[in-house]
Amino acid sequence: MSAGSKNESPLIASGLSVKFGGLLALNELSIEVRRGEVLGLIGPNGSGKTTFFNVISGIYAASAGQVLLDGRDITTLRPHQIAAHGLARTFQRSRLCLSLSVFDNLMLGAVRRLNSGLWYNLVRRDRLAADVRSAAKEARDLLAIFNPDLAGKLWQPAISLGMIDRRRLEICRALIGRPKIVLLDEPSAGMTHDETNQLMNEILEVRRNLGNLTVVMVEHEMGLIERATDRCVVLNYGKKICEGKYADVAADPLVREAYLGKS
């Protein structure tokens, strides 16, 4: 299999299972993500959506199955190795380093392309300073797409930001490393309806600017899913119960049952 050929699916999970104690959080789950699409991942609470993200990004170990990222087997790799293959994500509950500046938080997303060498960091301070300047410019440009105000807060601690700006910052942190695929875990969590809509427009705009980046999104807000996704996968009890366009999925009796319970 040649790595990264154009038509191939960038992310393929096959037969993925995860066990917590006796509980099967994922049960032989197979999901294929197509290049350039926005895939919605939906399902009731505890259906395994976030667990799926955690396995893909290497935080949990799969007990069975395989994950291919651009044709490479990443099933047993550690998180930092998976990141090196072009995967980035956000977290459901904010995982910013709140006491660090907006800039510092953003740079964590770019860790792979910044120079971590001792000689460079301790001795070549002139080169470091020049790189900091260009990184700051890049950071401002990216933040400005979301919110011009945010670009002006580059040196403020992340804790000083409001909820929606924090979420923006997390998304920017995932984007600044120029990943091939991004996992967004409930971008709307903790925000009002209007804020959510606004944020989603911004995300879609940035995605277009980045040449139709592949996105997998966990979301509870069904309006968002309808508007933003090309395709949906519905999970229940760690299993895929349905897959397809939102309109088709929403009409599926199995999906209705999963959400509303048996009537």
Partner: peptide, 18 residues
């Protein structure tokens, strides 16, 4: 920045390649 991130949230930042 890397050292601070290791202190503050090592799991989250390992996902970015640290």
């Amino acid at each position: 920045i890397w050292l601070d991130a290791v202190r503050l949230d090592e799991i989250a930042v390992s996902v970015f390649g640290l």
